[in-house]
Computed example of a mutant assay.
Amino acid sequence: MPDTPPALTREDVAHLADLARIDLSDAELDHLAPQLSVILESVASIQGVAGDDVPPTSHPLPLTNVFREDVVTPGLSAAEALAGAPAVEQQRFSVPRILGDEQ
């Protein structure tokens, strides 16, 4: 397990806030320094878990493709598709115009 990182000081947090152009009050600096130290300690503890024998992964469980194969099947002909249409014009569905001439 890697060494525990040193605790962040109030000055460290102020420097990071300055680099990030974040204006923090004195109370916020005092509040954030211990919280950020805990986060750094947690990350350091996780880094020690995965050894060289553990392969890097993008997902904890193996993923498989759940889709079926893309197989071409016969579809409807144009006449069959248009057979149930209320109105047909030039082998296309005919629908009422919804946009006026001003468009």
Rank of each mutant, 00 (worst) to 15 (best):
T4V: 13
Q103I: 03
V71Q: 13
L82I: 05
L61V: 15
E102V: 03
P96V: 09
Q90M: 02
V95E: 07
P34M: 07
T64M: 05
T64P: 00
L61I: 12
E11A: 15
S25Q: 03
L76H: 08
H15S: 13
M1F: 01
P5F: 07
R10V: 15
S42E: 14
T4C: 01
P56R: 11
H15F: 14
I22V: 15
N65W: 07
P55T: 07
A27L: 08
G75K: 04
E102R: 06
F67S: 15
V71E: 15
P56F: 04
V88A: 08
G51A: 06
D101W: 02
A44P: 00
D53A: 15
S94D: 09
I98G: 03
R21M: 03
T73S: 03
A33D: 06
A79T: 04
V66H: 07
T73R: 13
P34G: 05
D53F: 02
P62Y: 03
P55R: 14
A7C: 04
P6V: 10
E80Y: 01
A87L: 09
V43W: 06
R92Y: 07
A17R: 01
G100S: 12
R10T: 14
V71I: 14
L76A: 08
L24Y: 06
P55Y: 04
A17I: 07
L63D: 02
L29C: 10
A33K: 05
N65D: 15
A7K: 14
E11M: 03
S37Q: 05
T64A: 11
D70L: 14
I46E: 10
I46Q: 05
A27E: 12
L32E: 12
N65L: 11
E89W: 12
G48V: 05
A83D: 14
D30Y: 00
P60A: 09
L99H: 15
I39F: 14
G75T: 08
P96M: 11
I22Y: 13
P6I: 05
P2D: 00
Q90C: 02
R10A: 13
V72C: 02
P74L: 15
E28A: 14
S45W: 00
I46L: 12
A7W: 06
V72H: 02
E69F: 01
F93M: 09
A79E: 13
V71K: 12
A17C: 09
V71D: 07
Q103C: 04
L16S: 11
A27W: 01
T57Y: 04
H15R: 13
L29P: 05
E80H: 03
L99S: 08
E80V: 02
